[in-house]
Design a protein around this nucleic acid. Structure first.
Lengths: 369, 369
DNA sequence: CTGTTAGCGCATTCAA
DNA sequence: TTGAATGCGCTAACAG
């Protein structure tokens, strides 16, 4: 094994003490031009990079940020991590990345692991941001963290997300405006996603505001394959009273539902309109393009890191920050086909979209709850 | 700020020395049942987790693996990182994740950063695995690493990938078997991807073996959007002699090309068949499903970490390991439509697919080059 | 079986 | 401006 080049090696070569080397490298205090030049020459010659471990042992803080996300396989999370990585790199930090696989117990274990690594702070997307012993622990130890995608209801937790309920109201409003009345909501597991819950609530609110009955929610595992989704849908899409629209709580689910619906012999959007959430890139490439709610995925990750640094700096509020979302029209959502002859025209006047729903392009908002 | 609970805190509470605490925790030597119980009680009561920094300062080795990939946005890399993460976690290690954005200079900088963090080893996907000063540096310092997706030609570098040229020959063979003769190859930038190069070579070989002229390659940036791809394709797909098939060096590119071709008013696969590489999950969901070469993305990441541990153990060969690929049929690749009346039937007899191309399901191979 | 102690690489305090 | 000395949390070598 080759040379272990340490600060001492540099000092010997430069003919000075290790303290001087340290000072020159960190700019802590000025050294004479002569000594500084010798130190820099030695550093260059030896290709010396100070060990982060040694440095960390002093501060008990690394230049490392811990990240906990449910899964890298979902482009939504991968995109936010990409944003975190770029932002962290720009600030001389690195990411310690872990995935919880939507498992709360693992979540806790991962955080403990990351804390043991003395990360400077954490960015995480958890199953439940409100009742969460892991976050309580971090709060207790005063370790700074920022949530992404989670929208905690209780105060005191920093988060970066979108207004999921409002986004869902807007999307449901788009279905209503297109004449849909029987709209099914398919959600990822509520137990592992508060987004899913909040988006469902937005749907319920919009339906209620329009005076329409909501369909019972269908909770599906978005990680399951299309075959599983098809069998889950089989019963619901059989009868004459089948829904004309389906809102899915995320895009991967929506794409799989589109495939499942088509395999059942129904056309999208001819027979059934489908929309998703998140705005993943592939949604634009499929045909017809997927109607969805676009959110600034990468920006959310970057912004979370920015806020984490604010928190680490000490003088920042632990609030929920809402980034703008945008309804992205897509060919999978079209006006409902004219009612068939046998079905009498609904007597009630068509309801406009929920009056509470924001304009199609929501403005950026910061909510210091 | 709360208690900084160290090994000393535990020792005091357990009424023993810090060495004993260390031994109990690491199982280095047995302690009396009495003492061990007291230590464990103290550890539990204080919720003590030994600091990785302190531990690392001894070994000068962390329980951390450095990862360098081009981008998290491509599901191929995200998938392999998912595999690495799971495998590393199972072995008590964590990933330090960085992205190079296909920039060779940044690649080098990232590796230096990771080395300064004293990672136990590295997993990386680089632009050029053969002429690469960064890898030379790692070799020089004896730091273990494994390449993923790269297929170095020179010996002495550990890698996990698929036989890209063979896969490409197989895919080209599928086009030939379907009656295609004018087949265009669209590649990601050669300068940032040896995969792209090797896949193109496989295409060239298969075309030559079939006695057909290869079309000039079209190098595209797969990160660009569909509009850019459409304008790049405009000239090539206009004339009567336009290709009947397009092979793309990766799936994201293929999906974008499908969208671009359709926007130009051509049907896929009616007018032009398209296939990609990689086997990303969304390819199965689009309609028709994307024809592609499936590779075990997640497994490749996991396997790379396994091999990295072998390397760190010391007694492993630095060879290229080829995992099996599989041709995945998809609706975007169909038999070429019968020649139009005005075009005389080709006099040459139809060529069979390249005789060198492997069976559709390639077996796993390990090539100790 | 257990305690004492010496560093690992570095930043930093205290002297000079 | 510079050097010597200290200690961060932990493991391992050495005593007892």
């Amino acid at each position: 094994m080759p040379r272990p080049v340490t600060i001492r090696t540099v000092a010997e070569r430069a003919g000075c003490s290790i303290a001087t080397v340290s000072r020159v490298l960190n700019g802590t205090a000025r050294a004479s031009a002569d000594v500084e030049a010798r130190v820099r020459a030695a550093v260059a010659a030896l290709d010396f990079r100070p060990s982060e471990i040694g440095r960390s042992l002093k501060t008990l803080r690394t230049r490392t940020l811990g990240v906990v996300i449910p899964s890298l396989t979902n482009p939504v999370f991968a995109g936010s991590v990409a944003g975190m990585e770029a932002e962290a790199r720009g600030r001389g930090h690195t990411l310690l990345l872990t995935a919880s696989d939507y498992d709360a117990a693992r979540e806790q274990d991962l955080v403990a692991t990351l804390v043991a690594q003395s990360v400077a702070g954490l960015v995480l997307t958890v199953a439940d941001p409100d009742a969460n012993p892991t976050l309580d622990l971090l709060d207790g130890q005063g370790i700074p963290y920022v949530l992404v995608y989670n929208e905690p209801q209780r105060p005191g937790r920093a988060a970066v997300t979108v207004d999921n309920a409002a986004a869902s109201r807007a999307l449901t409003g788009a279905f209503l405006a297109a004449g849909h009345r029987r709209i099914l909501f398919i959600a990822g597991r509520f137990s592992t996603s508060d987004r899913s819950r909040l988006r469902h609530q937005g749907y319920l609110a919009a339906m209620a505001a329009a005076g329409l009955a909501a369909e019972p929610v269908l909770e599906l595992d978005y990680l399951a394959d299309t075959a599983a989704h098809r069998s889950a849908l089989a019963g619901l899409l059989g009868g004459p009273e089948r829904p004309t629209g389906i809102i899915c709580s995320n895009d991967l689910l929506a794409l799989s539902v589109v495939a499942a619906v088509r395999e059942m012999g129904l056309a999208v959007p001819g027979d059934i309109s489908v929309a998703g959430f998140d705005g993943i890139a592939i949604g634009r490439l499929v045909s017809p393009p997927l109607a969805t709610v676009d959110q600034p995925t990468r920006r959310m990750g970057a912004r979370a890191v920015e806020r984490l640094f604010d928190l680490m700096g000490g003088d920042a509020a632990r609030t929920v920050e809402l980034l703008p979302f945008e309804l992205r029209p897509g060919g999978t959502l079209s006006p409902v086909s004219p009612p068939v002859a046998s079905a009498p025209r609904a007597s009630a006047t068509p309801q406009p979209p929920s009056p509470k729903s924001p304009s199609r392009k929501s403005a950026a908002r910061k909510a210091p709850r």
